[in-house]
Amino acid sequence: MTDGPGRPRRETVLPAVPALGGLYAAGARASLRARLSPAGRAAAGRPAPALPDVAHVVRGVTADADHLTAYQHLLGESATDTLPPGFVHVLAFPVAMSVMTAPGFPLPLLGMVHLANRVEQRRPVRLGDRLDVRAWAQDLHPHPRGTSVRLVAEVEVDGETVWTGVSTYLAKGVAAGVGAEGTGMGGTGTDGTGTDGTGTDGTGTDGTDPRPLPTARWRLPADTGRRYAAVSGDRNPLHLSVATARALGQPRPLAHGMHTAARALAQVGPARGDALVWTATFGSPVRLPATVDVAVARAGDGWTVTGTGRGGRHHLTVGVAPLVGT
């Protein structure tokens, strides 16, 4: 599923899942140092060094029932004993974060943009399963607006890989030093137009695709980012408040990509099946508070969920397809 070198040979085994708050603080300090130091300023625009060839590993991660319930309820899912694929991401994410904040990681953590996400789930993860989480970075690529990188998280239960997540991030304004073969998967990460929302009257007579009629509407209040932070533990300041978002150059806090992507998956409901590929490409960020029109539609054996803002602004496209051939 990836074109990179794949799982690194070296492993750093962590005693437990690291706390995200500490990782953000460390990441913020490192990002700041990089920006402020003369060496750091000179480095901007120069090729970034290669990725460390190491995976971080945490063994025996388990889900807490109350935590799982809070996550499921936030997304409008029933509190079943099956972990939504997005909740497995929540459990694995701190391990990926520790990769991004470890010394030698070439890109600044703060302000990174989530371009796309892809999850393959071979079988559902259940409450009580002991998860071995392995995370690493790969595919450092130049991108028109900086450098993209993929963070891979692999989850094993009893030695069997059950869940693999690949998150593609963009570090703006940092030039990559390695690889030149592509701009990474999917998402364009533009701030504006998207591919649809032409604003026609819906008749489609001029040959353009009319905007799909919504099947649902999300009303995302101003505290949406804080609510997701509370269940995901991911307190990225970009999502928390106007003040913290402004500090990162955004006028208003943004909805977390993994929140909207997981909600789109929840919108499909049990029809998503047990073994699935769940992809998300993010367009224009969702500035909170926001109303997002959502259209669920069949796509082959699976589903497509499109999120569109007022004025036809494309926010995200989520694909849900049965996982075949494994």
């Binding site: 409008g76 919504p214 649902a216 509407r217 999300w218 009303r219």
Partner: peptide
Amino acid sequence: EPRTGLSMGEHQAITTAQ
């Protein structure tokens, strides 16, 4: 509607357009 967040009127408006 709990699963869609659309009011009944909005749902009917979509069907009306269809």
